[in-house]
Design a protein around this nucleic acid. Structure first.
Ligand SMILES: [Mn+2]
Ligand SMILES: [Mn+2]
Ligand SMILES: [Zn+2]
Ligand SMILES: [Zn+2]
Lengths: 142, 142
DNA sequence: CGAATTTTGATTTTGATTGTCAATATCAAT
DNA sequence: ATTGATATTGACAATCAAAATCAAAATTCG
């Protein structure tokens, strides 16, 4: 678990405390399925660490995002979902409006073109959100 | 006001009723500033039509979206904003994280490239969201 | 250890949006 | 114009994810 180290470093760097709960939450989060909600993660954590509260899950997810270990998304639903970030990778999403499937993809041309458009408008991009809604392979025919 | 006609047609086509409130809300919405919230729109409407309720504003905005006269966005905030749609135009957004400015842009290459990527993944795009967050021209230097 | 500081978690609160429902409006057929 | 079936309205309550509260507990560092 290298990410655990990254979290500890981030916390110390900010003068925050390395607590049991933060380590437990990070541990479970990093091993959980992608695009998980705070509530779902809380359920999973409780199976192993029954005393952890939902508030602390919300707070720790925020820290993980700040530390660059998680990314936060609102993919068409009203709830926020989180996913672990491996290194400096980036990806975007297809979302099937029929079955709810989330398909991740990466395309450097798309990223480059965005930068080009930004340059034209004298805008500096720090991050972006691209969500493509429609039908997945299984759902597209009827 | 050609859009008023479009709304009437849409309502009749769906067996819905053309009401005072729907026409009033549409009228004010179409003349309002872009990226307005339901609450803000309700304020504006009340200045001229004081009896219109917030629920009806929400319901009518939904109808306007369905009729293709409005588009609905969540640009990083927790609230939903609406903007009138002119014809079949489409655009995406830069959002300045410093001053909150929203800059609209259109780029056909970007749209085409998205389609290309979708084809590779056997995904059919019906709609999409692209939000580029960063600094606008004014805010980018310091 | 001991004190200063931060964190936790049960609980309450917030706030945007949606649901409820009795009163009212619309509209097609008389 | 009147009627009656149906849809709509608006005040209000409900929902629900997320944020705030705060006393008790944990962490850190000398
Ligand atoms: Mn993802
Ligand atoms: Mn816009
Ligand atoms: Zn699907
Ligand atoms: Zn700016």
């Amino acid at each position: 678990m290298n990410e655990t180290k990254t979290l500890r470093q981030y916390l110390r760097h900010r003068g925050l405390k390395v607590t049991q709960q933060r380590e437990e939450i990070a541990q479970i989060f990093l091993g959980s399925k992608r695009h998980i909600s705070a509530e779902q993660l809380h359920q999973q954590i409780r199976e192993i660490y029954p005393k952890v509260g939902l508030s602390t899950v919300y707070r720790t997810l925020k820290l993980l995002v700040e530390a660059g270990l998680a990314s936060q998304r609102r993919l068409g639903e009203r709830i926020t979902r989180f996913e672990p970030v491996a290194g400096d990778e980036h990806h975007d999403h297809f979302i099937c409006i029929n079955c709810g499937a989330i398909i991740e993809f990466e395309n450097q041309d798309l990223e480059d073109l965005q930068e080009e458009v930004a340059k034209k408008h004298k805008f500096t991009i720090l991050r972006h959100n691209l969500e493509l809604y429609g039908y997945c392979q299984k759902c597209r025919r009827r």
